[in-house]
Computed example of a mutant assay.
Amino acid sequence: MDIEQIRSYCLNKKGVTEDFPFDEHTLVFKILGKMYALISLKKWEEGEAAINLKAKPEYALELRESYPSIRAGYHMNKKHWNTLYLNEGGLNPELIKSLIDHSYDMVVQGMTKKMQTNLKSL
């Protein structure tokens, strides 16, 4: 998947916005203000395509053991975040989409009931 395909997939989810809260190079996708995916545009330009996604701690470890191109989240809480290095191979588009979905779902599950209700009404 290229960056535009990933961006489009992330933005097509309910309640998602994109922002640059840290710097002009770090694209962050949020659900009602809560981060669920990050992309370093600078690294993409340098040929190191990667995306940070949230995961359940056990699942995050399982993914790291199963795929060499998935490692502990770069500059993130290593327990809850993974970085997918897309140029290293081994990650098909269906898996990438599934991991984006998982990250989205994790963030939604962590929201208050009120936030979840607001999200459903969008």
Rank of each mutant, 00 (worst) to 15 (best):
P93A: 08
I96G: 01
W44F: 14
G89W: 14
Y74K: 13
K78W: 06
E24R: 13
L61D: 10
L11I: 01
D2V: 08
S98K: 07
T17Q: 00
H102V: 08
E4R: 01
N77K: 08
S40A: 12
L53Q: 06
K43T: 11
M106I: 15
L99D: 05
N77V: 14
N52W: 04
N52G: 07
L63N: 06
L86E: 10
Y85G: 09
T117Y: 11
H25N: 15
A60E: 04
R64Y: 09
E62R: 15
S66C: 08
L91S: 06
T26L: 01
M35N: 07
N82I: 08
K14Y: 06
M76S: 06
L61N: 09
P57G: 14
D19K: 04
K97P: 04
D23Y: 01
N92H: 13
F20T: 05
E24P: 10
Y59G: 10
E65I: 13
A72Y: 07
T26H: 04
S40C: 15
L38N: 00
T26V: 10
I39R: 09
N118G: 12
F20L: 10
A49Q: 14
N82F: 01
I3N: 04
L41N: 11
G90E: 14
I100T: 03
D19H: 13
E62I: 02
S69R: 10
L119W: 11
G15Y: 09
P57T: 12
K120F: 01
K54L: 02
Y36G: 04
E48C: 13
C10F: 00
Q109Y: 05
E24M: 10
N77P: 08
E48P: 05
L11K: 01
I6D: 03
L61V: 05
R7P: 03
H25R: 11
N82V: 02
N12F: 15
D105H: 07
Y59D: 11
D101A: 10
N77A: 12
L99R: 12
P68R: 14
Y59K: 12
K13I: 02
I100M: 02
L38R: 00
L63H: 08
K42V: 15
K78F: 09
S8M: 01
H75E: 10
E48R: 14
